[in-house]
Simulated assay, not measured.
Amino acid sequence: MANLYDLKKFDLNLLVIFECIYQHLSISRAAETLYITPSAVSQSLQRLRTQLNDPLFIRSGKGITPTTVGANLHQHLEKNLNQLEQTINIMNGSELKKSFVIYCPQIIIQGRLSGLLEHLLTEENYQVDQYDVVLAPETAEDLLAYRKADLIVTLSPINNRSVICRPYFKFPVLLVARNEHSRLNDHITYEGLVEEKFAQLRSQENGIKEYRAQTELLFPERNIAFRGDSFISILNIISTTDLIGTVPAPIFEQYKKVLNLKSITMPFELPDMDAYMLYNRSALNSHVFSHFIDKIDEE
């Protein structure tokens, strides 16, 4: 049985603040996550250092790194704090609610993830809120850190000790034109590509920017005549003009009949796009969320 008198003398909030610093390895990021000032975080850390007689974190380059005592404290805290969070959630009834917030590009919601969502909404009776991660003002790391998202599917991997990042799947990219294009059949030469005008996705999402850089290496002479902020706008302009463009295969398959589109064989092979699944490591302590992840793995 816990010694409640000793616990009463110890400020348990210090452990919460310590764990947040450990996850972000940053005083300022911990302060943002907990909605308190960096000064308050620093003062709390100093109090905990005094009580445990250890610096807990030391300077390393431009950041901080945990001491051995700090790393051991995290190992003990992570599981216990997660269990405490689950207990609070159960008392609040939130553990019983099968509700998830998912951020993913429209490429994936209309592709592989659509079958899973249909299963969850019909057979499992989940409530799912989905947002387009490409249009989100926050980064994927911030969405998870501030608990604004349960699951993120993105085109860019991240490296964060509190986040699980794993490959989700690959999907091909196709060169697309309208069926009535005045010059193009089912094949095109490199010389023919140089003469055509392209529609291109306008995005600051790192994965899309990196993919765009790869294609520019293959075809640096591409003439961009139109830029849109979604693949739907790209497909719409292609369907009504002689512009052509590269589009993920799942979206092309979804709209090719409606928009009267065709794919064209290129003189070189376009690289596939990679998608990654991100979620907080601590979320797996919830049996509802771990069941949700199991369903994704079964797809």
Rank of each mutant, 00 (worst) to 15 (best):
Y279R: 09
E19V: 06
K170S: 13
D129L: 13
D294I: 06
F268R: 06
E78G: 01
L84A: 11
E141K: 14
A199V: 13
G93F: 01
M277S: 04
F198D: 08
K295S: 10
S263T: 14
V258E: 15
A225S: 14
L84D: 00
L73G: 03
K295R: 14
L4T: 06
I88P: 01
Q43H: 07
Q86P: 00
R183G: 04
T65V: 13
P167S: 12
L261V: 12
L175T: 08
R222T: 03
K262A: 06
L259R: 10
E196Y: 05
D6W: 02
F100S: 09
I293C: 03
K8P: 00
P271A: 11
G70F: 00
N125G: 10
R227G: 08
E253M: 13
G245F: 00
T67C: 04
C20V: 10
G192I: 02
D6V: 07
S162T: 07
R47I: 04
I36S: 04
Y255P: 07
K148D: 04
A283K: 10
E269V: 14
V16T: 12
Y190L: 14
K98V: 06
N125H: 13
D186F: 10
L184H: 09
H187I: 05
Q86E: 08
L7W: 01
E85Y: 05
D54E: 08
A136L: 07
L84C: 03
L4Y: 07
P250L: 09
D11T: 05
G115K: 15
I152N: 01
E78W: 01
I296H: 01
L14Y: 07
A199H: 02
S44P: 06
H119G: 11
E180A: 14
K170Q: 14
S44A: 15
L259H: 03
S286Y: 02
S203T: 12
G63Y: 05
I188R: 12
L270M: 13
L193D: 02
D150H: 13
S44H: 06
